[in-house]
Design a protein around this nucleic acid. Structure first.
Lengths: 327, 327
DNA sequence: TTGTACGCGTTATCAC
DNA sequence: GTGATAACGCGTACAA
């Protein structure tokens, strides 16, 4: 069943049916008749033909490294909800390894998506910004959690540096003098966090030794091992900050296994304020970087772009330290 | 740039270009020439026109209640990977409230998706099976974690009942005699789990009191409160099984706060073997219901259907009890 | 206010 | 092995 059938049944032309469908100017009587016929026959316009005519199927591609990361899952959830609110579908791409991402860019472009949303600051690395810039020449690009200065690229970032810096200062004001920072990646946001850590130390007048920042894989056990090694090497610290809740969980587990009292002997602050932060014992204090707000703003940027309104290249969202029982 | 431009530039007809694109029979020389022209001009076929001609854009709709549930996120991740492997894109629908799902079914049908995958046994409730059955009349439907007997509906289920039953028996063989079961929902799989709990008790010759199964919202604090209430009401139990890892986390937190030793005084088994099970202290024993295998099998079913091969209506996947430090 | 006619890019069918 | 042409279903100038 197509638009011709409806036109015939309603005794009008296909143009009129089309106008009814697309809120064009139609006589009231004709409008009602056509609507009635469409309902009776259970007519749905063919999406492909519609896409061909309009040059869009109202679809947005979303690229993320992986989705069973709670942080990204939350982002996608909010993106989906908000995109749908504006009538857009979401095509999901789990890119995994970064080297694969160009393949997904091509895939999405071939599908004629209306825009591409990239989740994670890893998409904002300077070394590989070229891919994203190229993509942005062909379709609007929004980065959630990062930004690249290039035509067509828009970004929503959060104040990672300030967040960690503030957290350090908060702990310092509680009497902590020896800090350890555990991080998993030096993605752009990872760098900001680390920088914030040392800035915090500096502002508190604490000697900033590079050894206070330890890199380890994003894994609970790996974090546990890193803490163990730090203690074994003679380091002293009473407060641990991490770039990820998972790493903080490792720290907590180490403390529990070695009878270190949290938060009295060791304070711990995670990052992301994920579900994990409420699952640990004691519940983990964590920096909430407001991924849901970032995602919401991202869609807002996109809608602005679609409506050809003036759109800022970069938006910044502030964070919040959620204190639970580990500080 | 369209297929005509390529045809002109290569000095052939559009039919030949099309054949080159679709691995049709083309002379070797002509083939090379056309490919070269396409590469030089950077030609990509228009996806909408292609969809119009073929009646498909190789897209599968996936409906899930929410995605920041670790369990569902894992499912989606595996689905995406496997669908893509077979050349299909995934349109994500987070349906949230169940009442909304019909809207998403319509949306996906309007987009002419090649199939719809439903994640979660909530889509297999008898009371609302009608919606799904109707959907299946228009497009193939795969349910991950559930099954409905209706034309066009296929399901991958896991042996929830057997899993919980076995878990009870395992604990019984370790000397436990008093059990508590904490559950959040009586979705079809929720019912199976509960049934398995009581079957396990029966097989161990333990009196099955309905009060041993307590319902509570899916929330860590709610679970903690439920355990507290159970103890307060004079119930005795040395082993807690839950329908969800989150509930088990609540039990662990209650134990920690009240000096109850795990697993000596209280054994705890969760369900789903999610990331949470490794984040708790002590790490949580949990039943792995193999959501990744189920998802993989789901895509396999779909591929079978697309290739018009004979396809079973229902597939069953076995589970595994992953013992960590709470048993 | 309504209708006609054409274009969109592709594939399938036939004829050569 | 290749070419011409008719669908596919809809949107939209333009004409009436």
């Amino acid at each position: 069943m197509n638009i011709y059938d409806i036109a015939n049944a309603a005794g009008v032309s296909i143009a009129t049916v089309s106008r009814v469908l697309n809120n064009g100017v139609v006589g009231k009587k004709t409008y009602k008749k056509v609507v009635k016929v469409m309902e009776e026959m259970g007519y749905t316009p063919n999406a492909f033909a519609r896409g061909l005519g309009l040059g869009t199927m109202n679809t947005v591609g979303v690229v993320v490294s992986n989705i069973y990361d709670l942080y990204f899952a939350r982002a996608i959830s909010v993106l989906e909800e908000n995109l749908r609110k504006h009538g857009y579908d979401l095509i999901l791409c789990c890119a995994g390894d970064e080297k694969e991402r160009k393949k997904y860019f091509r895939l999405l472009l071939a599908k004629n998506v209306d825009a591409v949303i990239l989740i994670g600051s890893r998409f904002a690395k300077k070394e590989t910004a070229q891919d994203v810039a190229e993509l942005a020449q062909k379709t609007p690009v929004i980065i959630i959690g990062g930004y690249i200065e290039a035509p067509g690229v828009h970004g929503v970032i959060c104040e990672d540096k300030e967040a960690v810096c503030e957290a350090v200062k908060t702990m310092c004001s509680k009497g902590h003098k020896k800090f350890l920072y555990l991080y998993d990646t030096l993605s752009p946001s990872g760098q900001s966090k680390k920088k914030g850590f040392f800035e915090g130390l500096a502002e508190c007048g604490i000697d900033a030794d590079e050894k206070c920042a330890i890199k380890c894989p994003r894994d609970i056990d790996a974090a546990k091992a890193a803490i163990e090694k730090a203690f074994a090497s003679g380091m002293e610290f009473t407060a641990v900050l991490t770039s990820e809740d998972e790493l903080a969980v490792g720290a907590l587990q180490y403390a529990a296994e070695h009878g270190i009292k949290v938060p009295d002997d060791l304070a711990v602050i995670g990052y992301n304020n994920s579900l994990l932060s409420r699952a640990t014992n004691p519940p983990l204090s964590s920096i909430d970087n407001k991924v849901d707000v970032m995602s919401e703003m991202g869609v807002q940027l996109l809608v602005n772009i679609f409506e050809k309104r003036n759109t800022p290249g970069k938006i910044s969202v502030s964070t919040e330290l959620v204190e639970r029982a580990t500080t």
